[in-house]
Design a protein around this nucleic acid. Structure first.
Lengths: 337, 337
DNA sequence: AGCCACCATGTGAACGATAACATGATCCCT
DNA sequence: AGGGATCATGTTATCGTTCACATGGTGGCT
């Protein structure tokens, strides 16, 4: 073992008795190298266990690194995982890999991550949030890198957008509940602060409520961190305040599932005693005795399309100003409403 | 806009009327720079929106990039997500970020990811698998980078290990079922091929069965991809073959939950008609009418400790040969057994 | 005053690769 | 047989940063 950590092109070149440049060609443009040189160099590469140094390569080529950075509010939320999978699959088949950050729903943290990631000169940036600190916004503008926002069909995007309208989705679900005859419709969601998606869903709910002339009241709204237990808690708080509630729209994460469990504990019939509507078609939503009416978002596709937009931009950097891509959503009517 | 994409140290230096080196020092060792130079340079940095180029920095410093690569069998499996979160949290507080790959349970794919990741000169590698292709094994040995395997307390690790014994965990659960009086105990797991963890769990099950002198039979074992529905299918297949089964140990993913749902559909009392044991304490396991007995693995801690080992090794590269870290597991006895 | 230590800053080379150009050999065509 | 095109390979400069060393000014101590 020599003192040097890694095998370099120069080491391979020496062993194969060719120049560095020839080794480089063997790796990148083998058709430009004669058959037997190719064989000799490949042998040396294998024997030495050469692993290219992308840092050096990308630096000299002034090309971005073969990495795309993604920042999600929570790694452990399987909804975001689906989008990441779409991203990762699509990028990988183009030789690009994923750098992942977890902003923990904090814009300040997101800003720090953006700075750290940009230092790696990624080929692109995918952000779940579309509201950022001013400083983050400035960095993104100047980065000279495709930026895709995927959490909401935001009106004033930084660059590219692939998403769906949280507002429309929540409005549609509320309209559905109204059409089914419910009149005291409550709304529960994850915490609103810094979460544009939750805010938009709330706006959508209120819009439908107002349009139908139904009661709009703070009593009918509740926000709480997303978890099973909290879905039950939300239901409890709301119905304690207002026993006349006949439907709850739980617009986030696993809240609806928690609410279903709570209804079962209480022996409440769904939807007769209480209708339950969810957001996001968790596999589990289907599996209750009374399966849950919910909104299905094509989250894998969001990731896939985000990747495609980045790849396209890399091929053709001048093609800026692409309009937002609306992947839509689907209301899945099941037994709970 | 000039033709150049990014602002360089040289641009900042020019604007602040100092040398490149001074700017570099402002960023890395500001205590070596006089107060007013510091102010002037920082102003220029802000005005130009300078973002360091880690590619160049890490190249020259011959230091690894501030990235750690992790490869999991499936991004969308929330169990792995928990470990990733532990990793990510711990690394980030040390200025290191995560590169993420999804091997889709394939060793060939894992090998490709390892090669691609090593090219980025990461500070470390975290692998969920502990069995690799020969070529992957060779790369890992030669990489000169800390490698942590986290999926199983494997006997012949590549380098570092932080995990628990799948064998012992499955054995313990099987012993628990035996102690509770069950005699025809079936075993269902995710697909075994290339999945060392599932294989080890099966070994643990068989070990306990043999030790107790109970029936060991292919009829009592079933493997299927992990999903809700497949848990129900596993239960159906097993009891079709062998109606005398009185307990099923579902050692993987969400199979146990699927089996519970299937029991409910059939109106089977758990555990009277059929005992159900799971592996991995999904939040959901608690929330059935009959909550599920299961094994809790400290998956977040696995990630955290893996990160700590890497950080330690970076500080002190000579400290090789650390023994495996066993984080253990816990059998959580609930109503289903 | 003279000397040395120290502090702030600058200079030149180097990290490992690639781009652009240069070279010499081979080949084909007239 | 001569000359340009083509092919395989080599040479030199460069990417943006950091390292190692050099330099000049300031201050304290005797």
């Amino acid at each position: 073992m020599s003192g040097r950590t890694h095998v370099r092109l120069a080491d391979v070149a020496e062993r194969a008795e060719v120049s560095i440049m020839t080794v480089s060609r063997v790796l990148r443009t083998p058709q430009q190298v004669s058959a037997d040189t190719l064989k000799r160099v490949n042998k040396a590469i294998r024997e030495l266990g050469y692993v290219p140094n992308s840092l050096a390569g990308d630096l000299r080529a002034a090309s971005p690194s073969k990495l795309v950075a993604a920042i999600v509010p929570s790694i452990m939320n399987s909804l975001f995982a689906e989008t990441l999978k779409g991203l990762s699959d699509t990028l990988r088949s183009n030789g690009i890999h994923l750098m992942l950050g977890d902003s923990e729903y904090s814009q300040k943290e997101e800003e720090a991550l953006i700075a750290a990631f940009l230092a790696q000169r990624p080929s692109g940036l995918v952000l779940h949030n579309s509201t950022h600190t001013p400083s983050a916004r400035r960095m993104l503008k100047r980065a000279g890198v495709p930026v895709v926002e995927v959490g909401n069909l935001t009106p004033r995007p930084t660059d590219l957008v692939v998403s769906y309208s949280n507002f429309d989705a929540a409005r549609l679900m509320t309209e559905h509940l109204i059409a089914r005859g419910y009149r005291k419709i409550a709304f529960a969601s994850v915490l609103l602060e810094g979460n544009e998606r939750a805010q938009e869903r709330r706006r959508g709910y209120l819009h439908a409520i107002d349009a139908a002339g139904l009661e709009r009241s703070d009593d009918l709204m509740f926000a709480i961190a997303g978890s099973f237990d909290n879905g039950g808690i939300a239901l409890t708080r709301l119905t304690d305040r207002r026993p006349d509630i006949d439907a709850v729209f739980l617009a986030g994460d696993v809240l609806a599932i928690g609410a279903m469990l709570e209804c079962r504990r209480r022996g409440w019939k769904v939807p007769e005693r209480m209708a339950i509507a969810g957001f996001d078609d968790w596999e589990f939503s289907r599996h209750f005795d009374t399966p849950i009416t919910t909104l299905a978002i094509p989250r894998y596709d969001i990731g896939r399309i985000a990747a495609e937009l980045i790849l396209e931009r890399l091929k053709n950097p001048s093609a800026v100003g692409k309009p937002p891509v609306d992947v839509g959503f689907e209301l899945i009517h099941r037994g709970s409403t």
